[in-house]
Design a protein around this nucleic acid. Structure first.
Lengths: 117, 117
DNA sequence: TCATGCGTGTACCATATACGACACACCCCG
DNA sequence: CGGGGTGTGTCGTATATGGTACACGCATGA
């Protein structure tokens, strides 16, 4: 049940179909880890990498870092820092939004972006 | 520069002024850790405890767990799980709210709470 | 045939996290 | 003066995290 590994493998193989630069070995090299390590991660024999490594993978693969981190069971340190600055405020808000449907949350995002906030 | 330790000590000593049950030893016992450990945490000789222990401390002291976790440099696993379920949505929203003043965010919280969402 | 690249198996490891165990010196009060 | 409670110093440690190092067998193409 390695969500992260399965996803990583799937994406990498897709990229690889059109570009040999996406072999385990070459990707590992660009990302800065050992090929055997990356291989184990893909097969779920190894827990997902650190945030730093995941970010590098996402960047190389053209994927969303937040999504990949989520699959790894993590939340980016940057987001955590934002929350920590105003813990009550953000904790309340997030809990309120927990069960709201996507479109409602999205509406909020847009409202904030476009509004005179 | 131990934010967490200083805060903990301050709060505990306040409670202690009116109730001897808030000695290091007795609080430690209720919380389920060794007194020497708690003492070191208060003085910043020891990194802040785990989320579980912080939650127990907050509960015993009548403090907000999210605030104490924030002082410890953490974000509750519960909140992280909410974010992980819809990473893009929440990541976008949180980043948008990053520099908004408190009252604006608060307005949002209320809006969601009261609205026909 | 042989160098090159591929994915992977095995073994090992450095650092961080989150504490526990125990003893010591001090103070109070009965 | 002794028994209980107080805070703290020292030492040790189990587990998790996030990897590295190296070798093996297979494929492929020159």
């Amino acid at each position: 049940m390695s969500d992260f590994g399965d996803y990583l493998r799937k994406v990498r193989e897709q990229r690889r179909a059109g570009d040999a630069k996406f072999s385990v070995r070459q990707l590992a090299k660009r990302v800065g880890v050992e090929p055997s390590y990356l291989s184990k991660v893909e097969r779920g024999q190894q827990a997902p990498p650190s945030e730093k490594t995941i970010a590098a993978l996402a960047s190389e693969l053209g994927e969303d870092p937040d999504v990949m981190l989520a699959l790894a069971g993590k939340v980016s340190g940057e987001l955590q820092a934002i929350i920590r600055r105003r813990p009550k405020l953000f904790a309340d808000l997030i809990r309120q939004l927990k069960d709201l449907p996507d479109h409602a949350v999205l509406r909020l995002v847009r409202e904030v972006r476009d509004g005179d906030w």
